[in-house]
Design a binder for these strands. Structure first.
Lengths: 218, 218, 218, 218
DNA sequence: TATGAATGAGCGTTCATTCAT
DNA sequence: GATGAATGAACGCTCATTCAT
């Protein structure tokens, strides 16, 4: 069966919000991309802002769920970080549009709609801070500014959504592994040799990576 | 003497573009913030888009100049990276609005105005890639995916503009030093102990850090 | 049924463009005259300029069609001129606004929109020049400057749109007949007596003729 | 000495009002064409509308003066018409911009400024109607609709301003003579042969005649 | 004389949204 | 469901004009 109309609307919104921004995307752009009249759009959404909030909520909920699942029963901080990074990077590489929308538009939301989204984000971030604190407590991490380090690592992993392309030479797995290594290094973990990261060379990470937005680095 | 009117316009634009986005900022918002009528605004700017491009150009030009100056006569890749990171982080911490505008709005520009901006950015990036390549060649850096690492490090250093507050407990110097360390770790440089980074603890990096946009991590 | 909204818009535009000029007519004037909000206007038109071009195109197309039809199967130059003048004058008397808009605004159009309009006008004019040339060739017309004469005659017949009123004492038929006579005289045709034009006196052609624009002569 | 600034302003206005229309000409266009700032413009004019009215007034006053002078002591209706046409056509050929502005913008003026202009125009027209009436009374003219004929003739002679170019093959003298003939024919005067108009052929009246506005006929 | 600075009003057009059909 | 019709508000920008210097 074809994609349901409501889903088509949401997908159009995700793509447009990600590429042109919320304020840069008009209701008519949305309608056109969803092959609907702009009036019909309103059968599938509330306001434009609610549509945005819904996208952000779902994206963050997914991320939180995946991370929570991935951490279940794992207590070793190094392994927890591995999993957090993998989940985060994978999500941002696979759904760059969704995650960019979720990451970039919190300030657009009015207080009412912002609340839920912020809570989800904070819950998600707590997984990271708790893990890092535990690693420090256990002495397996070594960083003078854990909060700054956490933010830095998150920014670094989040950035993936803005440049990674699965059509480039770098597999999703390698991408994730590389970010795991970068993160562990940032946290001062001495990574044992032979983890498969230490020697291969990247030819060019992501040639298809697209437009201006991301020749940063290409 | 008071600030010249044209400068007031630019400052208003920097603040508003940074906080509400280019499309989220209306010409009337700008006028109000610059204490001018919307008609008078046009004595000090071309189009709204040209105003944006001007801000971006100047910001990137500054960054490029500062980095170029800082690297003058320095050939040791480690020292070069230290300086690049310091310049980058300092600029982003001191002028978070300018840098955010410059970093976030390339895709907004029409081709004509985009050209110059992209060139500046590419020139700036080249300083980083050249330095990293040289370090790899000399064997002082160790990273399997230098391009990815470079992007990651830049994202991490750029992120500073979104959360750092000079009113927080972290001095600009410490901030820069910490990012130098994170970057060198990412590049696989074994930092000798006692460099002053390895033991202090951050209480809370930046309590005044502001709105929702940055409780990411606070 | 009442007039369709789109038609109402066009009629308002015709009247306003004719009386106040294209640049003198604001989109809000148009909206008010069409009893619509200025936003709604845009359901029935493209840009204001396209609205103008459409009016001009239709007007000229009608004129061309009517003239072509009137000339079908007629080869006598005198009779052809009779018919051309009759069609032209009648159209300008009956639809003074449409024709004034079509006659006065060619230079307003941007090249893209101008092209079609100019082509129609040139095709129409060709009917006149061909006819006049043929009459000269046959020796039934006598004028030293046929091109100038053609322009003069056209200006004279076109002017009707600026002053004729059907509420005046002059019937449409007499108006046309009189212009036929003027035209044939200009072309040096010796009009046989008794054609009904040679003796009646006009009391006052058109007292209701309207504003200042045409008391020229009233 | 160079042209006085005030005169430069007026000339710029004449050209621009003629080609782009009053409403189509902005104060900035005027300033640029007069090589002045738009503020300085106001040292040489009142409002834009008063500038227009001044141009129209002067143009019509000139026309009226010239015609009055030309008619002085001439009582023969045919000769009077000759002179009226010659004056009118010459003025319109020599100062096409001034006359177009004067002819086309009466309805633009507000009542206060319109009054004088209309009076001048009516006085001028009276010369024509008086002459025609006299010719009819004397039996030298023969036209069933003298008012219509007068308007038609005036339209025809006025049109010259829209297409004649002194760079074309038609001399100003021939142009005037031809229009005299057309007018006399319209008035039913049997023109004696040998007046110099009856045989020469125009190749192409006015090739330089310009743009779209006047390929009507070219 | 000349102009930079300033503006209230208005330009043509598009915005997000509603509603009757 | 789907949409054409409709709109008040706002968009970026320009208008004609004034005034202090």
């Amino acid at each position: 069966m074809a994609v349901a109309t409501g889903e088509r609307v949401r997908r159009a919104a995700v793509k447009l919000f990600a590429t042109k921004g919320f304020h840069g995307t008009g209701i008519r752009d949305l309608a056109q991309a969803a092959k609907l009249s702009s009036a019909s759009l309103y059968h599938y959404m509330g306001t434009k802002e609610e549509l945005l909030a819904g996208i952000m909520r779902d994206c963050l909920r997914n991320l939180l769920d995946e991370a929570t699942t991935a951490l279940e029963g794992v207590s070793d901080p190094v392994e927890r970080v591995r999993r957090l990074v993998t989940v985060h990077v994978t999500a941002h590489a696979r759904q760059p549009n969704e995650t960019r929308v979720a990451d970039d538009n919190i300030e657009v939301l009015s207080p009412r709609l912002r609340r839920d989204v912020v809570r989800l984000r904070d819950d998600y971030e707590a997984l990271w801070s708790d893990t890092i604190e535990e690693g420090l407590r256990e002495g397996v991490f070594d960083t003078a500014q854990p909060t700054v380090t956490r933010i830095a690592v998150l920014d670094m992993c989040t950035g993936v959504a803005r440049w990674y392309s699965s059509r480039g030479p770098l597999s999703l797995r390698l991408l994730a592994e590389h970010h795991v290594e970068l993160t562990l290094r940032a946290l001062g973990v001495r990574v044992s040799a032979g983890c498969g990261l230490a020697n291969s060379r990247d030819p060019q990470a992501c040639p298809g990576a697209a437009a201006e937005g991301r020749s940063w680095g290409e």
